[in-house]
Design a protein around this nucleic acid. Sequence first.
RNA 1: AGGGGUGUAGCUCAGUUGGUAGAGCAAUGGUCUCCAAAACCAUGUGCCCAAGGUUCAAGUCCUUGUACCCCUG
Length: 295
Amino acid sequence: MEDLKPKIICVVGPTASGKTSYAIKLAKECDGEIVSCDSMQIYKYMNIGTAKPTLEEMDGVVHHMINFVEPWVNYSVADFTTSARMHISDILARGKMPILCGGTGLYLDSTIKNIKFISEDTDVEYRKELTLFAMENGKESLHELLKDIDIVSYEKIHPNNVQRVIRALEVYKATGKPKSEIDILSRGEEIYDSEIFGLSLQREVLYDRINKRVDIMMDNGLVEEVKSILSMEVPKTATAMQAIGYKEIVRYLDGEYSLEKAVDAIKQESRHYAKRQITWFRRNEKIKWINVLGK
RNA sequence: AGGGGUGUAGCUCAGUUGGUAGAGCAAUGGUCUCCAAAACCAUGUGCCCAAGGUUCAAGUCCUUGUACCCCUG
């Protein structure tokens, strides 16, 4: 049965580890097309801050799942997996090798593990309602709401993690079933025969690369990019504006941060982000780790 | 040169009337099934600048030295 699964290649790793160029190199070697797995590069206009590959860097290699969502749209993992799988099928149908490349672990895993999310859209109103409830009655009270309807999630989710508690409540409201049960049902088999490469490098080196890359982003006009996106009436609360590099510049433009503080914050946030990515990928035993820069 | 201040965890600092030390940030580890570049959890032994002294006991008091900062000439 294993043999029937189509073969794909994945390239993962923390931010600034060199995934983009590595994937492009692979694509050229094996006649592949790249399917980006990045929660922020999906947005249009956000080029500098998301370190999106330039046309020159792509060097003729076809890229998918990049530059197709307006920044004021709140895209979702479910949307992503559907589109990504379609692209993968299409690439395979044309006899080429799909190369999934990106640092958003949830997006990549959900896509290749065939995880099915509930079909109901996110309930914005209900989320607001619950957020308000938490503010008025406390996080613990919100968490207690889970106790009777989904004891497993109640025990699994920390009371402070309001975001997750809300999602569990939302799933119950939409389906009438505990999220913990639905999660088990939706746990799919891997749909591809995937070979996953992880780029790793010494922590110090990685952090240094991150810091330098942020300086380069500033030189390349990150501030101007953020300004021009804001001028399109993109709300500051949009998911796109939560991206590292964007939210900090927004604060600078609002006078909340000095430019220097904003830059430091971007570097710091990026380092934290890289660490979380490493944690996410570390537990995936399928990943073949390669040290790109030696050491 | 004289006067004053500071010197405690990688950084910024707490440390009550003397009982061998604690916060924030950083760092590290972790969770993750639609806000995921998000949200959240866990982990704090450091010659308390040095050397003497007082004391049963000193980061905490005294003396000297030392580094840095400020003020006056």
